[in-house]
Amino acid sequence: MAFASVRALLAAAEEKPLWRAVLEDDCRDCGRTPEESFEKMRVLWRAMERSAAEYEPARRSPSGLSGGQGAKMAAAENTLCGGFMRQVMATALMVGEQNACMGRIVAAPTAGASGVMPACLLPLRDREGLGEDLMIQCLYTAAGFGQVIAERASISGAEGGCQAEIGSASAMAAAALVHARGGTAPQMAAACAMALQNVMGLVCDPVAGLVEEPCVKRNVMGAVNALACADMALAGIASPIPCDQVIDAVAAVGWTMPAALRETGEGGLAGTPAGRDIAGR
C-alpha cells in the first residue's frame, strides 16, 4: 500500500532511513525482495546516466524546435551561475532534448520532466565523488515523495498543468538532494514543500502540443529550483504550510485550471501568435 501522506512517510522514517521505508513498502506491495527492488532501481539509475551521456549535439527533433541547446549551455563561458550550476542547466537541457528527439530517457515522473532528476544528481555526484548506492537511495527518496504527490494531486500535465509535471519532478529532486547531503526526513519534506510552492499554478502550454517548447527549458527551472530548495531546507528554513497541505493545494489549483492550460496546446505560450505560427508549420 502506497503512502497516502508525507506525514505517514515521515512516521515510517522515524525508525529507519526514509529511502529504506519506501523500499520496504514496495517489497510488501509487489512481492519483491529488497535486493531485487534495489537492483531494479539500479537499472533506472544507470539508464539515467546514459540519458545524459548519449546526448548528441547534432540531433534535432522532428519539428526542428529542439536540439543543440544543451551543448551550447555546456560550452558557455563566464556564466552568472558558476560552473556547477552551468553543468546542472546543461544536463537538464541535454536530457530534455534527448527526450524531444526520441532518444532514450527515464520518465521521472514523466518523460517531459525527465531532465530534472539527472540534472540535479549527476553534477553533484561528479563534483563530490558520491557512490552509486547513495544515488539509488536518492531515487527511492524521490519516488516516495512522488508517490504521495501522485496519490493526492497528480503527475500529469493534462490533469494538473506543468506544476504537476516539472513541479513534481522538482519537489522529488529537492527531497532527494537533501538525502544526498545527509539531511533529515523533515528537511526532505520541507524541501519538497518549498519546491512545489515555487511552481504553484504553473500551466502546461506546449507549443503545437509537443513536449519541446517550453518543456525542455522548464526542466532547467525545475532542477535549479530543486537545488535552491534543498539548500534552504538544509540551512534550517522550514515551510509553515506542511508538505501534505501544499500538495493538496497543488491538486486544488490543478482542478480549477481551464482545459486550455492543461496540455491541449491551446493557451499560454501555445496560444501566442508565434506559438500558433509554429503549430501551423
Binding site: 533506472l44 524531444a100 520518465a107 496519490e151
Partner: peptide, 21 residues
C-alpha cells in the same frame, strides 16, 4: 501507484502517454 510507476519506465521519448504507452 507503484514507485516504479513514478520512477521509470526507461523509454524512448518524447511522451510517456503518446510514445511509451
Amino acid at each position: 501507484m507503484n514507485i516504479f510507476d513514478i520512477m521509470g519506465p526507461v523509454m524512448v521519448g518524447p511522451s510517456s502517454s503518446h510514445t511509451a504507452g
